[in-house]
Amino acid sequence: MDKLAEYLQYPFVRYALIVGVLIALCSSLLGVPLVLKRFSFIGDGLSHVAFGAMCIATVLKLSNNMLLIMPVTIIGAVLILRTGTNTKIKGDAIIAMISVAALAFGYLIMNFSNTPNLAGDVCTTLFGSTSILTLSRADVWLCIIMSVLVLVIFVLFYHRIFAVTFDENFARATGMDTEKYNLLIAIITAVIIVLAMNLVGSLLISALIIFPAISAMRLFHNYFKVTVFSAIFAVICAFSGIIISILAGTPVGSTIVGVNVLAFAVCWSIGKLRGTAA
């Protein structure tokens, strides 16, 4: 416990906790509609696109690679989410195609750049390594602002997001501009995924999106309760995951995901024990 208090003296530890909690919160809130629309793996797909963009930005020696990563990832999100329904290529195939292409292409490009530690950079991006513990103040502020924006948008458009997720046809028939809301969901997803890459890395992002939502759905039967529980679940898992990893010396990303999996197992068991509740 004393060790923990000592660690908490460091600003970078406090930053990690703040950012980790905010990102987990945003991912889980968005996870509910994404999982219900059967886009669970979008976290993976888009993070690979973001990885590809990062590689290009590195090769071009851009001073701030966010300038390239954000827009490219947003475009990727729009392509994936909007071609998901009513097209010749179905959602999962599109995600697979774009994601794998971006990952391969990105890594190829990196080989032509002259970064000194290719393996390390790639590893950091894919698994997060300790990047959440090496954030600057500017990074933290950026994250706080974007998370607050996402949260505000989510609250403002909560009912509309529900309508578009539950029954897009009905929503459109009653006059709602579903295109606009699908676009909104796509953009927010892209923003969160780019931010979340810092926390758990590309390969583990899907966990932040999926586990809280699915755990909540095992226990609750009301969309609002599912959403709220999802958020609480994600925050607790992220917080404890970070604390455990700094105390035990384990990689941050995998630890957070590990906690998520354990917590999911608990929720699943409780759900099973309750049986088929009315």
Binding site: L36, R160, F166, A171, T174, F220, H221, N222, Y223, V226
Partner: peptide, 17 residues
């Protein structure tokens, strides 16, 4: 879908919002 009956029915009022 994990939604209560009330939530589903209420979503019909969306156009009035």
């Amino acid at each position: 879908f994990p939604a209560s009956v009330m939530e589903v029915v209420l979503s019909g009022c969306l156009s009035r919002m």
